[in-house]
């Protein structure tokens, strides 16, 4: 981004300023995830090793698996589809890496950094709130697993980062809906609720 004319403008996240009213409670926290670089990678599975070389980090080969580190993470979403994520500052390095293998290895790398918005869901009630609209068996989902799935009326990519810590990615124009949905489903988990009313805890 060139200096000068655009200075002072920030990229506009559609959930800018969104706060979960009940967020003070220990049962559930919702937060808007940080922006990052996202790239959609399509490549023949046979050439995955070359992609790993270009990416400079492990890329899992099984659908639903995720590799993650401080500077890179990779989600396997389909038989030949991966979502690569990294800090925004790493984006050019990654695209350059893939450009190098491009000549001999056909693949598709598409910038989708602005396509989705991330929402973090954590706390003991996180799985219950997600299960308000997501049909997956989250208890049996391994930590470090991911899935593209449904949350009520929205498609999301869900990652289980820790036992009670999930992140989801939803396309930009659905983000407001997804946030409202999670906030609404989460209302009953506010701090001072009578627990006997909240079954399943």
């Amino acid at each position: 981004m060139s200096e000068g004319f655009f200075a002072g403008d920030k990229p506009h996240n559609p959930l800018e300023g969104a706060v979960f009213a009940a967020g003070a409670g220990p049962e559930l926290q919702l937060a808007v995830g940080d922006d990052c670089a996202r790239l959609s990678l399509r490549i023949a599975p046979a050439h995955l090793d070359r992609a790993i070389g270009a990416f400079g980090f492990d890329i899992p080969s099984k659908i639903g698996e995720m590799s993650s580190g401080a500077q890179r993470s990779a989600l396997c979403l389909g038989p030949d589809e991966w979502l690569l994520m990294a800090p925004e500052s790493e984006r050019e390095k990654i695209t350059a890496g893939f450009a190098e293998i491009g000549a001999q290895t056909s693949h598709s790398l598409v910038d989708v950094g602005h396509r989705t918005v991330a929402i973090d869901i954590s706390g003991p009630a996180s799985a219950m709130v997600l299960n308000a609209g997501c049909p997956l068996d989250l208890e049996n989902m391994a930590v470090g697993a991911c899935a593209r799935t449904i949350l009520d009326k929205a498609e999301v990519v869900l990652m289980k980062l820790e036992g009670e810590y999930y992140r989801l990615e939803t396309v930009r124009s659905f983000a407001e809906f997804v946030w409202k949905f999670l906030s609404t489903a989460g209302r009953e988990f506010e701090q001072c609720r009578d627990k006997t009313r909240v079954t399943g805890l």
Partner: peptide, 18 residues
């Protein structure tokens, strides 16, 4: 269930909606 009011259906808004 939750499908009432704002959650009855998704209202997709474009980047310049605001």
């Amino acid at each position: 269930g939750y499908s009432r009011g704002d959650l009855f259906d998704v209202t997709r808004k474009s980047p310049t909606d605001r």
